[in-house]
Design a binder for these strands. Structure first.
Length: 304
DNA sequence: AAAACGACCAACCGCGCTCAT
DNA sequence: GATGAGCGCGGTTGGTCGTTT
């Protein structure tokens, strides 16, 4: 049962294939992807090889590491500025690929969409579609809330689910301190901060039944808002603010201040290290098996 | 304990751009 | 200038795992 030599293989990559691909990149650099197949090294298309390298095998990737609050914030900011230019956004996030950013944004949008969808039906009525399951997160609050109005509640997902094995420490998750160690050159201060956790926000939403989103009271007895958060709430009618969260397709916002260099350096504890739980390779990283100088000739991460 | 569901992620696909011929 | 190959990017899909009921 031999596979035809020119048959194109698809699906998950095996460790042996990864090894072949890495060897090829070591020898020829990250280019000539299609030659990998033409040389008979792998039964993969050049596209597939490139994707595998870029998304998984490239050095210094934060594979399996959840986005830190800072990274979330940067993605939100840059998405508002550039639209769905994931590759461009990823250049500002060391160790993150366009696929990472895209997946992060996608799941974030899905979560928000579901919250809006379920909240669009009053809890007391239309019970036919209401599922008590996940009621903890899906509270019925709003009626016909426009898509661009709710996402403000969606930060702080770090606290939402820290159960996955891929969670890893980040120096940016200290929510008890101002997250100001990394200067953001534009409106980041709007979203910076100790907003209440996701759960707390939803609890607040629940408490705010029948109150349209922009009218959220800041006087909830069990919630305290930082000055930044209060400012944020006070600016809920700011169109730019909503652009930052909504499904912005091509927000040409005019002349925005240009971003500087990558906002933060690699988080060493995350580099290729957070995913071992699901990886077929053993502890440590796949690259641990290679001498450290192996990657000397490999192109560094692009800088913006 | 099992089923249902959501979250996350890897990989594929299609389109458009660039460049060599 | 036309054309085809190679590549990059964004959108989408399908699988796996964790959580909830």
């Amino acid at each position: 049962m031999e596979a035809k030599r020119d048959e194109i293989r698809k699906g998950p990559w095996k460790a042996e294939e990864d090894e072949v691909l890495i060897n090829h990149v070591q020898r020829y650099g990250a280019r000539d992807w299609s030659s990998i197949r033409s040389k008979g090294l792998l039964q993969r298309t050049g596209k597939s090889c490139r994707l595998r390298w870029v998304n998984k095998l490239r050095p210094n990737l934060k594979n399996g590491c959840k986005f830190s609050m800072e990274e979330e914030r940067v993605v939100i900011e840059l998405q508002a500025q550039f639209g769905n230019k994931w590759a461009k956004i990823a250049t500002y996030l060391p160790g993150r690929t366009d696929n990472d950013v895209k997946n992060f944004w996608s799941s974030r949008q899905k979560r928000l969409a579901r919250i809006l969808q379920t909240s669009a039906t009053p809890s007391s009525s239309s019970s036919s579609n209401f599922k008590p399951r996940k009621a903890k997160k899906e509270v019925s609050v709003f009626h016909e809330v426009p898509t661009h109005q709710a996402p403000v509640f969606s930060f702080s997902m770090e606290e939402e689910s820290s159960t996955k094995a891929q969670s890893c420490s980040s120096s940016f998750i200290e929510t008890t301190e101002p997250v100001s160690t990394v200067p953001l050159p534009f409106h980041a201060d709007l979203v910076k901060t100790e907003l209440p956790s996701y759960e707390a926000n939803l609890a607040q939403m629940e408490a705010q039944t029948q109150i349209p989103f922009p009218e959220i009271s800041q006087n909830q007895p069990d919630l305290t808002f930082s000055p930044e958060s209060q400012e944020l709430l006070a600016r809920l009618d700011d169109p730019f603010l909503f652009n930052m969260f909504g499904a912005v397709d091509a927000p040409e916002l005019g002349a925005q201040p240009s971003l500087g260099p990558p906002l933060f350096g690699p988080v060493s504890s995350c580099i290729n290290g957070g995913r071992e739980a699901r990886s077929p390779t053993t502890h440590g990283t796949f690259f641990d098996d290679f001498p450290s100088d192996v990657f000397d000739n490999i192109e560094p991460l692009p800088s913006p």
